[in-house]
Structures are given as structure tokens and as C-alpha cells.
Design a protein around this nucleic acid. Structure first.
Length: 850
RNA sequence: GCCCGGGUGGCGGAAUAGGAAGACGCAUGGGACUUAAAAUCCCAAGCCCCGAAAGGGGCGUGAGGGUUCGAGUCCCUCCCCGGGCACCA
């Protein structure tokens, strides 16, 4: 027993000891430092938020990047492969509140853990370029970007109903609200009216949408699709309905239904509501309805099964018929889409139909289906398809498509309408009422209004200490620090106040990929010529969860910088790869609401129970996360098993873009494989000079297969091919030939991107003293791969009956001759008549017999 | 509801210009080594049926249909799972 443990430890120690040795070797050689010459390749993994511990989910991301980085390095590229920290953010601040640790200390402690772990994993980063978004020499430039946007009119302040998380005590961007819930704490968000800073990303909506075409083919289709949907372009018409001395403007994509309007509906948040209340004889009821509507959470508002609203007893004028149209206020109207007011066409819009049914409003049919009975349909629902116009005055009998054009023209000629495009995309709310973020470089002066902090005074530093880290309702905790708050106006020098909100951390991460190129530049955000050299990112690797957040924001900011001539291209990420998640099985106690350790789980008839309490547990396989309590900590795993085991396990388990479950067995497989590799490379001796064509042919075939899979990101099958390669080498009879040594060398080079430490070890065991990575990836020659004899399959009446060996590229007659002498012929054909003969060269002989 | 993915052995997964389904690995069974166990090595293995065995036969890629000499792969209908969006006018 004692001995067994000793051996186990020894084997594992071997991996770890080997890895330490070669990590030092690479460091001393400065192997992965950016060379600064030759053709560049910029490979980037989405940088992490440094919280707690790294786990296998993180490693998958970095392992993929590292494999590509090493492949490109061996192909002779000047590889830029950096790492840094997305270091501002809420958890640091919560740690400050809960444990009274300074957010900076908490963050730096985590960064140190992350950095050490990644070094232990042997990642090929150029560590000299490390950046951290919470350092003043970084966030100075985040502030600089803010001011740039401000000068261009792309950063603005407005009072607005915004998403607010009462638990996190901060506002949230549209993108951070998932299913009506705060993406961080998963609690329902509410709408609050605050004065906030926005980035005008909608001004770039059209370009963000159109330029997706440039990315098509290089970005995953579903990410492009998600961005298209998120931007949500629709073309329609803005129509003015006269209301007293004003106009109520609505947006519609279905102007062909305008003669079917039977009411106008206004979102409760809309400023015009105040005006309407002034005139309405139904003031109290309206105020009551609006207050209730605004206090609902997003989820409550969206999940209402019936439409609600209130009649204002006010009317607007139909632009074409002149009829009086009743005005309602209803919370099914979304305030920040279109104009926040809609024209109600119950016959042809399901939502308006439901509203009209509830409030007994007229349902005026104006579009007739090409087939089917409109009256019958309207008994149950709205008819939303295109059709032929009826009850529409001079537009009768037009098709919807044509009518949309004609009616739009007519409205335009009356100056009561305008063709227009609406986007689902909202402006990016970037204010956050938090301490641990990048301060917004703005000063409020009673005389001068909103004043920018002059560039020479950047960065606006976060105060080192606060008396209380706790946010105040609707305000940043920075409000507590009067030294920070009060300053002098840069223009008139009188006493003024600083902005106390900080920026959304997505602002920090919207440009970090640039800073890696020129991380120490004190004079400018980035040197334009270096930018030209290293951008765009050739391969960007990260999780799909950022499809509509980070990846839209980064594209937006990069385009703004492009328009300013600061950068040279208009898209930052040439190729995007989204890796799948690492899942882990765990057992959930639904009574006590926590994860139960596997050691106390007992199985009975396919169900799982807690050994002590007897509670039935839920077996789940989900993404590794701290909150689920199912993480496999990376640092500990590396100490026990080494990095190459983890990498092989992760990469072999499934294709990189696919989710997979982390299990003991994939670790076992990886260990066994690497042990077999090491044992093949022990006690070697080469003395014989014999050439073996078959070996040569095999090697070239494997080089081809493995390199093709490297190029296509099929790393799981690349490793499978390496395993086949190894098995062949292991069984090869003449292990003393120099040609065999060459084969072992090629294997070590091909293994290197996947298991870099073990590859370096076996390469050196062959007697070489340079790094295995200083070898170019081996090339193959097609002429060695082609064999003289090949096996082709024989099918009779569509059923596979065996194989025959024929010369390569034989013609039909030759093949048939061979076939006639085969046992298959003897058995299945001999006395039968061949009705049809199909021969596909080098593949199949297929016969139909009567 | 709409839009994307995807259903292959006990398990993870291979196989796309339609041409031998199950590569590679895990787990499993048997054997070798060992006093023993672990580790390692060798062999077997999709499922079902016949046979003492050698061997032989049939069925098989979510279900049903179609195209074809030949379908995991192409077409049609349906079922299930995962993801995205969702009162966007």
C-alpha cells in the first residue's frame, strides 16, 4: 500500500518536475517574447476578471489560444500572445463591504494568484505586456476615450427611465438585463428615472450591422446572427397624429394598415404623458395607472397575460381620414423603441387586437388575405400577414407591399410622415453608481455647466480610501469623499463638483486589445504605426456569452477610434472563435439549497440521496461556477497532475467549440497517453542505417492529417491522430534505425503545441539541445502518401460484401478481373447475372445481380 | 411563439464532393507480470440470432417516408434536447 502510493506520487511528480524544468528553459531563452519582425499573428483570449480561483473552464479558453499561438510560432510568425486583467468590477467592492479589504488589495491578490497559476500552466504569454484595467496608467486612457466620445457628441447625459438593480444598487445597461433580471445577482430589475451618461452607439447601428458582412465566414454564424438581431433594424414610417397644438409621432413598419387605426397608445414613461394629464378629465386614474406601471419590474410588466391601460379622454387626429382617434396610455408600449407611441391597428396586430378586445375598441379590417375569410380570422385573432387593401380609400386593391410605398409617399407629401429606420439597439448606459471603476472625467460648474477634465489633468484618480464603501441609493459611494467631489472648474476656476459615477467595466474592456500592442506608451493610447503592424487581432477566443455585449461595444469603440484616425482598420477582431463550456456533474440539495459533496451522495435505483439526511438530491451537469460549487480548481490540479495532462484532457474530450463534461476518465486517458509517450522515449539507441518506405509513407500521412486538423481547430481529432502515430511507433519493429529516430523527432514536434512540456522533454531525450519550438512544423509530401495497392469495397445489391486489393487508379476492367478471381465473386455472383456494374475509382465496386 | 444548433455503442466522441458506420480514447471482460494490489503490457468487444467451436446470418446513426447501385451524410413529415430573441409596433 505504501509502495503503491509512492509510485503514484512519483509518476505525477515526474510530470510536474518536467514542466518546471522546461518552463525555466523557455523563460531563459525568452522564447515567447514578441520578436518585432516578420509576419505578425495576434492571438488573444478574452482577458479574465480576476476573482477567486481559476478553474478548468478558464483553462479551456487559454489552452486553445496557447495551442494556436505555439502553432503559429512554429510556422515562423511574429506571435503576439498577451494576457491581462479586467480588474474593475463589483465583486472587489463587495469584498470591501463585507470583509473590509480594500478593493485594490483584493483585486491585486487575485491577480497574483491568476498570474502564478497561468505561469504554472506554462502558457506562452509575453508577460512583459501585462495590463490591468484598474491601474491609472491604463484607465487614464479609458478616460481619454470618454472625452473623445464627449467631444464628438457621442457621450451625452440625459434624465431617463433606466434599468436599476436594487440589490446591486446600480443602474444597468440594456445588455446586462437578462430576462428582466440583473445579470450579476439574478434579481428582477426595476425602472428608475435617473440622470445618466450614455454612449451613442445607436449612431453606429447601421455600420455595426453592415460591417458584419466583412466578418461573415470568419465569425461563427450564430454570433453574427445574434448581433443582427440585437441591432434589430426595421424600416418603416414615422407618422404624425395631430394632438392639440402638438403632434404625437408614431413609428410603424405597416403603414399599409393606417386606415385601420382605432386608437393611439402611449408608453407610461413618455414625457407627453404629463402634458396629456394636464388636459385630461381623467387625471387621477391616469396618474394612478402610470405609477403602478412604473413600479412594476420588467418581468412583471412583460409577463402580464392581459393588456392593461387607461383611457385619457383625449383625442388625436388621423393624418389621412381626419377622424378623431382616442388616446390611451398602456404599458405594453415600449418607451425606448421607436417613438414610444404606437398606432393601434387591432385587425392587423395581435397586441393591438388584445388591447382592443379588452377596451371594446373598433376592429377595422383593412387588409384582406389572398385566401381565406378575414371575418372568420378576426373573430379569434389579428390578421398580421400581407394582403390586399380594403376600406382604405384611394389605396384599395393595392398589395401591402405597394401600399406601404404609396401611403408613405402620400404622408410625406402632406408633411405628416417620413420614411425612417428604427433599431432595437439602445444607447449604451455607461454610468455606474460604484467606487471600483474608472471615474468619469467630468466636472459640473454652476457657471459653465458640464466641463471636461483637461487632458493634461488625466487621469482623474480614484481616492485611495473611503469612509464607507457602501453605495447610497442612486449615488456612488464616491459622493462620501468631499475631497474628491469638490474641485475647481477648469474654465472659470470657481468651486465645482466632480462626477461621482464610474464607468461600466465594459468600457474598460472595449479597447484593451489595443493596449497590449503598446502597453507602456505614456504619450498616447497607442502608436498608430504599431497599431497598423499588429492589428487587427487575427484570432480572438472567448465565450459566446459576450456575443451581444463586449463584442458589440468593442466594435463600436474601435470604429469611433477609426473615425478619429487613431487606428488603421474598422473592425478589431478578424477571426472569432467561441469555445464551449466545461461542465461538471454535481448533486444539488433542493431543500437546503446547496451543493452536496460527492462523498456523502448515495445512489439507489438511479436516484441520489444524501447519506445522512436522506434527502433526495438532484443530479445536474452544468457549467463550472463558484455559485454551483462544482469547480475543479486549476492551481491544485496543476500541482497534482501538471499542465499537459489538463491540456490533453480538455482538448481531447470534445471539439473545442463544444461543451463537454469534465470527468475523472478524461483525466485518466490523458495521463495514460502522456505516460506512454514518456516510456517510448526511454532507453533509446540508434545505430542502423536502413530505409523503410512504409514508415516514410506512414509519417507523411500522419503529418498531413495532423496539420489539416491543426488548421481547422479540430484539436480533438488531431490528438487522436497523434495517438495513432504513437501506437504505430510503439509497435514498429526496427527501433534502432536512424529513420525511426527521425520519426520520433517528428512526433515530438507535432505533439508540441498540445503538450508543450512533454514534447520538449522527449525532444531533448533524442539528444537535441535547442527548443522543440525552434523547429518548423514538418511538411508532408503527397507523393510519399500515395500507396501502390489499395483496398476497395465491393457491394452487391447495395450490401457490403468485402474488400479486394487493386492497384491504385486501376480502371474498371482491371478491377473486375481481380474481382472475378476473388472469393466474393465465388460466393455471391458465380451463377447469377450481373444487371448493373458501377465502379468508382479507388473507392467502390457496386454490382446489381438478378 | 420566432430564429439557430444538435440527436451515432455502456460513455466522450470519429466519419461530409454520398462509397467498409463506430477512428481515437474511457469504462468493461479475459490473460500476462506480482506473494498480493496498484501501475504497466497483451487480447476481446455495436446489438440480436444460429453454432460446441471455427464460422455464418440478420438488424443497426431519434421516428416514419423518399431519392440512389449505395444514405449518419441529400429531400419531405414528425418527435426530443440545447442555445438565442421575445409585447421591438
Amino acid at each position: 500500500m505504501v509502495i503503491s502510493n509512492y509510485f503514484k506520487i512519483l509518476v505525477h511528480m515526474d510530470f510536474v518536475a518536467i514542466e518546471k524544468k522546461w518552463q525555466l528553459f523557455w523563460k531563459e531563452k525568452n522564447l515567447f517574447k514578441v520578436k518585432g519582425n516578420g509576419k505578425k499573428f495576434y492571438v488573444l483570449e478574452m482577458f479574465p476578471y480576476p476573482s477567486g480561483d481559476l478553474h478548468m473552464g478558464h483553462l479551456k479558453n487559454y489552452a486553445i489560444g496557447d495551442v494556436v499561438s505555439r502553432i503559429k510560432f512554429m510556422q515562423g510568425y511574429d506571435v503576439l500572445h498577451p494576457m491581462g486583467w479586467d480588474a474593475f468590477g463589483l465583486p472587489a467592492e463587495n469584498a470591501a463591504i463585507n470583509y473590509n479589504i480594500h478593493p485594490r488589495d483584493w483585486t491585486n491578490r487575485n491577480i497574483n494568484i491568476f498570474r502564478e497559476t497561468l505561469k504554472k500552466a506554462g502558457m506562452s504569454y509575453d508577460w512583459e505586456r501585462e495590463i490591468s484595467t484598474c491601474e491609472p496608467d491604463y484607465y487614464r486612457w479609458t478616460q481619454w476615450i470618454f472625452l473623445l466620445l464627449y467631444k464628438k457628441g457621442l457621450a451625452y447625459r440625459k434624465k431617463e427611465f433606466v434599468h436599476y438593480c436594487e440589490h446591486c444598487k446600480t443602474v444597468l445597461a440594456n445588455e446586462q438585463v437578462i430576462d428582466g433580471k440583473c445579470e450579476r445577482c439574478k434579481r428582477a430589475v426595476v425602472k428608475k428615472e435617473f440622470e445618466q451618461w450614455f454612449f451613442k452607439i445607436t449612431a453606429y447601428a447601421e455600420r455595426l450591422l453592415n460591417d458584419l458582412e466583412k466578418l461573415r465566414g470568419n465569425w461563427p454564424d450564430n454570433v453574427i446572427k445574434q448581433q443582427e438581431e440585437w441591432i434589430g433594424k426595421s424600416e418603416g414610417v414615422l407618422i404624425k397624429f395631430k394632438y392639440r397644438d402638438k403632434f404625437l409621432e408614431v413609428f410603424t413598419t405597416r403603414v399599409d394598415t393606417i386606415f385601420g387605426v382605432s386608437f393611439i397608445s402611449v408608453a407610461p414613461e413618455h414625457p407627453i404623458v404629463k402634458e396629456i394629464i394636464k388636459h385630461s378629465r381623467n387625471k387621477e386614474e391616469i396618474e394612478k395607472y402610470v405609477n403602478i406601471a412604473l413600479s412594476k419590474t420588467e418581468i412583471e410588466r412583460r409577463s402580464q397575460t392581459t393588456k392593461t391601460g387607461v383611457f385619457t379622454y383625449e383625442y388625436a387626429t388621423h393624418p389621412l381620414t381626419g377622424q378623431e382617434i382616442p388616446i390611451y396610455i398602456s404599458d405594453y408600449v415600449i418607451y425606448d423603441y421607436g417613438t414610444g407611441i404606437v398606432m393601434g391597428v387591432p385587425a392587423h396586430d395581435q397586441r393591438d387586437y388584445e388591447f382592443a378586445k379588452k377596451f371594446n375598441l373598433r376592429i377595422i379590417p383593412v387588409i384582406k388575405p389572398k385566401e381565406g375569410n378575414l371575418d372568420e380570422i378576426l373573430k379569434e385573432r389579428a390578421f398580421e400577414d400581407y394582403g390586399i387593401l380594403i376600406n382604405s380609400s384611394e389605396f384599395n386593391n393595392l398589395e401591402s407591399k405597394d401600399a406601404i410605398l404609396e401611403i408613405a409617399k402620400k404622408l410625406e407629401s402632406l408633411d405628416l410622415g417620413k420614411r425612417s429606420t428604427s433599431y432595437r439597439l439602445r444607447d449604451w448606459l455607461i454610468s455606474r453608481q460604484r467606487y471600483w471603476g474608472c471615474p468619469i472625467p467630468i466636472i459640473y460648474c454652476d457657471n459653465c455647466g458640464i466641463v471636461e477634465v483637461p487632458e493634461s489633468e488625466l487621469p482623474v484618480l480614484l481616492p485611495e480610501r473611503l469612509e464607507s464603501w457602501k453605495p447610497i441609493y442612486g449615488y456612488s459611494p464616491l459622493e462620501n469623499d468631499l475631497n474628491f467631489v469638490y474641485t475647481n472648474c477648469p474654465k472659470c476656476k470657481s468651486k465645482a463638483r466632480r462626477e461621482t459615477d464610474t464607468m461600466d467595466t465594459f468600457v474598460d474592456s472595449s479597447w484593451y486589445y489595443l493596449r497590449f500592442i503598446d502597453s507602456k506608451n505614456e504619450n498616447e493610447i497607442i502608436s498608430k504605426s504599431l497599431e497598423k503592424l499588429y492589428m487587427p487581432v487575427d484570432l480572438y477566443i472567448g465565450g459566446i456569452e459576450h456575443a451581444t455585449k463586449h463584442l458589440i461595444y468593442a466594435r463600436f469603440i474601435y470604429k469611433v477610434l477609426y473615425d478619429e484616425g487613431i487606428v488603421n482598420y474598422d473592425e478589431p477582431f478578424n477571426k472569432l472563435f467561441t469555445q464551449g463550456l466545461v461542465l461538471k456533474r454535481f448533486y444539488w440539495d433542493p431543500v437546503n439549497y446547496k451543493t452536496v459533496d460527492e462523498s456523502v451522495v448515495v445512489e439507489k435505483e438511479g436516484k441520489f440521496y444524501h447519506a445522512e439526511s436522506g434527502i433526495e438530491l438532484e443530479e445536474k451537469v452544468e457549467m463550472m461556477s463558484k455559485s454551483r460549487g462544482n469547480i475543479v480548481p486549476l492551481s491544485k490540479f496543476l500541482d497534482e497532475n501538471g499542465s499537459d495532462v489538463a491540456r490533453i484532457a480538455i482538448l481531447f474530450a470534445a471539439p473545442p467549440e463544444q461543451d463537454f463534461e469534465w470527468t475523472d476518465s478524461i483525466v485518466q486517458g490523458a495521463k495514460k497517453f502522456l505516460n506512454r509517450v514518456l516510456s517510448l522515449y526511454s532507453s533509446l539507441e540508434f545505430t542502423e542505417d536502413i530505409e523503410d518506405y512504409k514508415l516514410k509513407s506512414f509519417i507523411h500521412g500522419k503529418i498531413k492529417e495532423i496539420r489539416e486538423r491543426m488548421d481547422d481547430f479540430r484539436f480533438n481529432t488531431a490528438i487522436a491522430k497523434l495517438m495513432e502515430f504513437l501506437n504505430y511507433l510503439k509497435d514498429y519493429p526496427n527501433k534502432k534505425s536512424y529513420q525511426y529516430k527521425e520519426a520520433l523527432k517528428i512526433f515530438s514536434i507535432l505533439l508540441a503545441p498540445f503538450a508543450p512540456h512533454i514534447a520538449e522533454e522527449i525532444y531533448h531525450r533524442l539528444g537535441y539541445e535547442n527548443s522543440v519550438f525552434e523547429n518548423p512544423l514538418p511538411d508532408y509530401d503527397e507523393k510519399y502518401i500515395i500507396q501502390e495497392e489499395i483496398k476497395i469495397s465491393v457491394q452487391i445489391n447495395g450490401i457490403f460484401r468485402g474488400v479486394i486489393s487493386v492497384g491504385v487508379n486501376s480502371d474498371e476492367d482491371e478491377v473486375f478481373e481481380v474481382f472475378k478471381n476473388s472469393q466474393i465473386y465465388e460466393k455471391y455472383i458465380k451463377h447469377k447475372k450481373i444487371v448493373k456494374k458501377i465502379y468508382v475509382k479507388n473507392k467502390v465496386l457496386s454490382l446489381v445481380v438478378a
